[in-house]
Design a protein around this nucleic acid. Structure first.
Lengths: 257, 257
DNA sequence: ACAAAAGTGTTCTAGTTACACCCATGT
DNA sequence: ACATGGGTGTAACTAGAACACTTTTGT
């Protein structure tokens, strides 16, 4: 097919958004790494890898998890987010990014992997227009720009301040990811996999909260149960660990691949 | 980033689903081409091209339209569908496919382009489990398999009958596309762009009909208007062309890129 | 006047929201 | 006993479905 016109093939990058839940703080977390190679050396970024010839993109995304946090997730849930192809997204060599998301059943300790001088969990929050991801030293945000073309035309590249902005177009990718998760909250809330195999309704509301940009108490438990019970299966009562009635435990009713 | 382990880079294919509407028959159409090179020589397929180094994937998708049907669509609406990476999807060399969709404002005559011995419009219909695409000689269908992994594990490859099946995993791609369009019907019905700049409510219902798998008359006009009027803008009355009251004309209220 | 095509309005129902109340546990 | 966290129930409201009716055109 007009193969004489094919120029060099672009690099294919797998970008994986790795989510977890901290049961101590009851907050949603995402994994960011500090790059130690160019481009965007010393910027914080979503974890990335290159795809190998004999693996599917999903496999590459899971291998990336293993490299970054030393966790074997052969059976874990990974789903495709979108593919990012804008020529402006990388300086120099063209690179396509295939975006994936992995929902970890717990929040493991981290060790920096290949190509990263640091790897940390960032806690999710929100503002009026953005989602925020912060640790003790930094706060990063999804872009507040709603339109793709506008975002890339105003894209700062490597001039941005590495203490305030992420590498590449990762602030756009974060926006796409959070919007996607939010849209699926009412019919396929795979994000709840970060709660592990079982969870209480309150846990679920704590996960929904930042995506809906409301406080947990603003999500009425009675109504939440009524409108989501078809998605959850009751698997008995939780063990007691404090004052108050023990909560019932649920699991996701049907995961579709 | 562990670059010593990168094997050969895969081929990147752009697969574009090109939709149009036939105002004579009031049916939705999709463009298929008959391949005249390997693999899948002589099979019908969705139009594909390779991406060039200096164009974005969207640009490649639009260039493909120009090559296939000689139509310049610089300003047309193209949106990303998904990326297909399963190693089983191509025999021999690995090829990723970036899926896009283009909604043509009319239904032009066709001429076969590079890499195709024929190019035709196929009329959309439906069965219980599938969407159908037929012309006078053939009827092809989206897969009836609901699960990606199952689909690829049962995937027949080049053993399938070229008069009954499409090339590659294009029956899976068709399913993903139709499901996507259906899901967006109630909040971002970009598929209506195939009606051109203006349309009547009945036109809109004729487009919705095959995706919802119901006959046009089963979509109540009153209720349809009530639940979709925020998506449409009234732009006056249509000219008269037969018995009956002239219909009002609408356009899409807000297209987001 | 009547048939055809399109638009409007009304009832009925089902799903949401707000909020009050009841239950189980630890101290 | 009572405070705390969690589950249940009900009334009000709102969005959707079914269907009858009115308007505008051509013959």
């Amino acid at each position: 097919m007009d193969s004489e016109n094919i120029l060099e093939r672009p690099f294919i990058t797998i970008t994986n958004l790795i989510w977890s839940f901290d049961h101590a703080t009851n907050r949603v977390n995402i994994l960011l790494v500090k790059r130690d190679n160019d481009p965007y050396n010393n910027y914080w970024a979503l974890p990335e890898t290159f795809m190998r010839a004999q693996e599917s993109a999903e496999e590459a995304a899971l291998r990336l998890v293993k490299e970054k946090i030393g966790m074997d997730l052969s059976g874990s849930h990974t789903e495709q987010l979108a593919t990012f192809t804008n020529p402006l997204r990388t300086p120099g060599d063209r690179a396509l990014s295939l975006g994936y998301m992995t929902f970890l059943p717990d929040k493991p300790q981290l060790k920096a992997g290949y190509g990263a001088s640091d790897a940390r969990w960032f806690t999710m929050g929100y503002t009026d227009k953005t989602y925020t991801f912060s640790d003790s030293d930094h706060i990063f945000q999804s872009t507040d720009c709603p339109v793709q073309r506008t975002y890339y035309s105003e894209f700062g590249g490597t001039n941005a301040d590495p203490d305030k902005h992420l590498a590449f177009d990762h602030e756009w990718i974060l926006k796409v990811a959070c919007d996607r998760i939010r849209n699926k909250l009412d019919y396929q809330p795979n994000i709840l996999l970060i709660l592990g195999g079982k969870f209480t309704l309150k846990d679920a509301r704590r996960v929904y909260s930042p995506f809906l940009k409301v406080r947990v108490e603003q999500i009425d438990n009675s109504n939440f149960k009524k409108s989501h019970q078809e998605l959850f299966t009751d698997i008995g009562s939780s063990e007691v660990n404090g004052p108050g009635r023990p909560a019932r435990l649920y699991k996701l009713a049907h995961l579709s691949a």
